[in-house]
Write a protein that binds this DNA or RNA. Structure first.
Lengths: 205, 205
DNA sequence: TACATATGTAAGTGTCTCTAACTTAGGCAA
DNA sequence: TTGCCTAAGTTAGAGACACTTACATATGTA
């Protein structure tokens, strides 16, 4: 037998290399292709080329897999929000709108994962990493809101407006995904609305 | 054999009477008890006391059952919103807040159904009844917003602010359900926020 | 080289959705 | 009343899925 640890990505290796990561990627792809209810772990296994029992060497159960996939998605969302905030200076009135836009864009780019992130009902409580990333996202919003109003990010006004901004943007993200109501509003309407919220925020400086 | 059509609600009837309605009620109960992902049609059948094949005499498939349950829930939401709007006169500034509060209260009372209503990804498109009820809800919000601003409900300002109000309230409903962020805000904070949105709406009259 | 451990497979269990074929209840016409 | 037609149940079973158990193989380390 020749050494099968060839150049071709371990062609016929018994061991997979990075099954954990590839499963999470397969889940992400399937969730977007088939919707948050139409995918299965078994299908992700087929995509990764392993048996349906393999995942249980890396995860405790289906929920654990989903939670891990959600964690990765939350980190992508965090990076998108951070990039948007960093792209503008603290005083720029467009900064609030850009932050909101990044959130909406994420929901539009990954609607399936977005739904799972905020629709999961079990097993997301006792996940400190998930809580930590969520907290980091909240901090960005509070920082941006505080900068906009000329107060520190932990100022009650900053916290309150940050939450209000989040509510608004989160609601818009959901409503435009299932366009039950958003009857194809003109594309510039969204940007105008986000600016409107920014302008509604009091400027205390 | 005696006549089994007794007083006791057709005790051992082969035919069920109102299986369709009872299945939908069982689904509603299970969704709240076990969460939107933890229930099954089979369990609803057990609750209703029929075999697992029985539902398919009344519905085409699982999605059809869910869609029908969602329709009933949407009608409950509509009634709650209508009651809230009717409880205040057109000029009352508390009317906007009350309407938003009714929405949030519904999400809190039926969190499972609320999630399914706005989380369903298949088979909700081609349902004219669902669209109709959703449209009725939207009309209430536009009416209330228009009244508040002193313009007709189809005025662009009324439509825009109605959508903004809906986004805000919808986002808050979701965020406080999975309290990933809403770290037990004080209970009066919610009412104050809703009033704030009402006051932010321009009064053109 | 030998062994412990990590990571895969095959086979099997229980549940779920949905179908097919059969059975019974109830209504209506003759 | 009798006899059929249809609506609304049943049982049995297929196929998919989540998950478990027992077994096999590769990898790292003493």
């Amino acid at each position: 037998m020749s050494d099968t640890k060839s150049l071709v990505k371990a062609k016929k290796n018994y061991h997979h290399g990075d099954l954990r990561g590839q499963l999470l990627e397969a889940v992400r792809e399937l969730v977007e292709r088939k919707g948050p209810d139409g995918f299965s772990i078994a299908e992700a296994c087929r995509l990764a080329g392993v048996s349906t029992a393999a995942p249980y060497k890396h995860f405790t159960d289906r929920n654990d897999i989903l939670r891990s996939a959600v964690l990765l998605a939350m980190e992508r969302l965090y990076l998108a929000m951070k990039d948007a905030a960093d792209a503008h200076s603290a005083g720029d009135p467009a900064r609030v709108a850009a932050l909101g836009q990044s959130y909406v864009d994420f929901a539009r780019t990954e609607p399936g994962m977005f739904r799972i992130m905020f629709g999961m009902t079990d097993g997301q409580e006792d996940c400190p990493e998930l809580t930590r990333v969520g907290e980091s996202c909240k901090l960005i919003v509070e920082q941006v809101a505080g900068d906009h109003m000329g107060v520190p990010p932990d100022h009650p006004m900053a916290v309150a407006w940050a939450y209000a901004l989040w509510c608004f943007v989160h609601g818009h993200s959901f409503l435009q995904m299932d366009d039950k109501l958003a009857q194809k509003a003109p594309p510039e309407m969204e940007a105008r609305m986000l600016h409107m919220v920014g302008e509604a925020m009091p400027n205390l400086s």
